[in-house]
Every structure is written in C-alpha cells, then in structure tokens.
C-alpha cells in the first residue's frame, strides 16, 4: 500500500513539474524571442511578465469553444488528446535519480515506471502524435488544415525513421532499452557519457527531434505565412490551447530523453559533483537543450518542403544506418 501511495505521489510530482515547466516555457520562449529581436516581450503580468501564461489561461477559459458544423465531431474532439496524453505519458520512463533512493527515511525508486522497453515506448508515443496531427487536420474539413496535416504527417514519419535508427547505437552500447540501465551504463564522469561515441547519433537525433516537434526550421505544418495555422486551423479557445501546450510538453520530453540517452541523465559531469541531487542535474541538462531549441528557432529560417524531405531521407537516414553499422562493428570487434 505504501508503494502505491508513493506511486501516486511520484506521478503527481512529475506530472505537475512538467505542466509547470511547460507553462513557464511558454512565457520563456516569448521573452527569449523578444530579447533576440531587441524588443521587450511580455512584461505586464507580474515581474518581467512571468504570469503571462496564467493570464493566457484565464483568457482561454473564457473563450467560446467553437466546433464548425462540417467537422467530424468525435475525431475533432479526440485529436488534441492524442497529441497531449502520449507526451505526458513518456515522462513516466525518465529516471530522475537513483534506484532505491532514500527520501526522508523512505526508500523509493526515483522513476515512475522502471520499464524495460523505455525507448520503444518513447518512439511509439511519438508515432501516436502523428495520429493526433493527421486526425486534427482531416476532421477539420478545411483545406488549410488538410494540407497542413498531410505535410506534417509526411514530415513526422520521415524524421521518426532517422530518430529511431539513431537510437540503435545507444541500445548497442548499453545493451538495454531501459532508460534506468542506460543511465547506469553512463556512470562516471562526463567522458563516459554516450554523446562521445555516439556524436553522429546525437546530432541526427537532435535534428530529427526539431522536425518531430514541428519547430522552426522545420515548422512547415504550421507555416503561418502560407497555411494560416496548419492542422490546428479550426480549433478555438481551450482546444487550441491543448495543442499549444502539448507542443511545449513535447519539447520537455524530447530534451529529457536527449539528456538521459546521450548526456548521462541525472549524473553529474564529475564524480565529486554528485553531492548535488541528481534531478537538479537532469533539469539543468534539459534546460540547456530547451534553450538550444529556442535559439535554433529564432535564428534559422524555415526550410522548403523538398529540402526538408531530402534532408530527412537522403542524408539523415543513410547517415543513421552508417552510424549504427560502425557502432555495431566496434562493439563486435572489441
């Protein structure tokens, strides 16, 4: 029974941490964009505008929930959840600290689910997000939404391939798909981390994750100037808010996965720095990647669609296969 209570507490903490961080990131991204473009960004609600997201939430709660007559209603209603629930579910496999850790005299694992197929779960949930996008676009019965959804579907599945293959190198090295064991494999100082032997895999994963998140330079599904809002064209108020919110939660999940698989997860860069609790290191690494995502978003212009597809299929996919073959060769010979 105590185990079960711990489980509920852990799930609630991780979930609300994720939600809170996403809320701060919505403000953070706007502020960051403001700084990069030499303007102020949000600055009315609270000091430096930190309460902006809560103001937005209050606004969205008062907005009318318009569902057009021509849409496919059940699919239209389900689509935002298909994007949002998998994103939150993936957080369950991220280890935030050691197994059997001691907290206030209680022993517990600092991970929600110590799941053997963690990476497969992450990739599967990434695939479910494609359904969310395509359902949203198709059910809207609007031309903008349909074009956006088709583009987005093709883009996301193309990059998902490279993403899945770039992780095979990590699996070969660690001999496991369990994120807890992958972090254990990277124990020690930072030169034991996976990003050194798997640098190519990491770069492929990072590029593919930007495409999966539909962020600039790969934000063709939403390309405001040409497609209005892409697949979420017909959504209003809080339903649109779910899409927006899940985008940021997805960003948190991607950076957490990247930190865990390639950068030692909750481990400190030097053995002696492990006095600082592991989850702070994980959050620091995640914030580093999130800032990198934002930096890329506001510095690089959007790709053309054919450039995007040839980058995914003609460069990243063969590169990922080559990376995996070389990793396998090195491991077999050794």
């Amino acid at each position: 029974m105590t185990q079960f209570i711990f489980l509920i507490i852990k799930a609630a903490i991780v979930f609300f941490f994720c939600v809170g961080l996403a809320a701060m990131l919505i403000w953070g991204e706007r502020k960051y964009a403001g700084w990069m473009q030499s303007r102020l960004g949000p600055n009315y609600a609270g000091p430096m505008g930190v309460l902006q997201t809560f103001g937005d939430l209050a606004k969205l709660l008062r907005k009318e929930d318009v569902i057009p007559d021509t849409v496919d209603k059940p699919v239209f209603r389900a689509a935002p959840y298909l994007l949002w629930v998998p994103a939150a579910l993936t957080m369950a496999v991220i280890p935030f600290g050691g197994m059997d850790a001691k907290i206030f005299g209680w022993r517990t694992d600092l991970v929600i689910a110590n799941f053997d197929a963690g990476i497969v779960l992450f990739l599967a949930m990434g695939s479910l997000a494609v359904y969310g996008v395509v359902f949203a676009g198709w059910s809207s019965n609007s031309r903008w939404a349909l074009i956006g959804a088709l583009r987005s579907g093709a883009q996301m599945i193309s990059y998902e391939l490279s993403m899945g293959l770039s992780l095979v190198g990590v699996m070969i090295l660690a001999g496991s798909m369990n994120l807890v064991q992958i972090v254990d494999y990277q124990s020690g100082a930072f030169w034991h981390w996976n990003f050194i032997p798997q640098l190519v895999g990491f770069v492929i994963f990072f590029i593919a994750s930007i495409a999966e998140l539909n962020r600039t330079p790969f934000d063709l599904p939403e390309a405001e100037q040409e497609l209005v809002a892409g697949y979420m064209n017909e959504y209003t108020g809080m339903r649109w808010g779910i899409f927006m919110f899940s985008e940021y939660v997805n960003m948190i999940v991607m950076s957490a996965i990247m930190a865990t698989l390639f950068f030692g997860g909750w481990r400190a860069p030097f053995e002696s720095w492990n006095v600082i609790p592991g989850f702070l290191w994980l959050i620091a690494k995640m914030m580093g990647f999130i800032i990198l995502y934002m930096w890329v978003r506001w510095s690089v212009p959007r790709y053309r669609y054919n450039q995007l597809m040839s980058l995914g299929w003609k460069i990243l996919f063969p590169l990922a296969l080559a990376n995996l073959a070389v990793t396998a060769l090195v491991v077999t010979v050794k």
Partner: peptide, 29 residues
C-alpha cells in the same frame, strides 16, 4: 505495476484538460 503506473499518467494528463474543458463550457459565452 507498469500498467498501473502508465494508467496513472494517462488519467492525470487527460483529466487535466477534461476538467479545463468542463470549466470552459460553464464559463464560455
């Protein structure tokens, strides 16, 4: 155990926005 753990996350995630949409339908013009 793992099913229970994942189920908890799904309930939390879906529940949050189901609750918010419920509030929206009470408040919206």
């Amino acid at each position: 155990d793992i099913f229970i753990q994942f189920f908890l996350m799904i309930v939390l995630a879906a529940g949050m926005f189901v609750a918010m949409l419920w509030i929206v339908h009470r408040l919206m013009p």
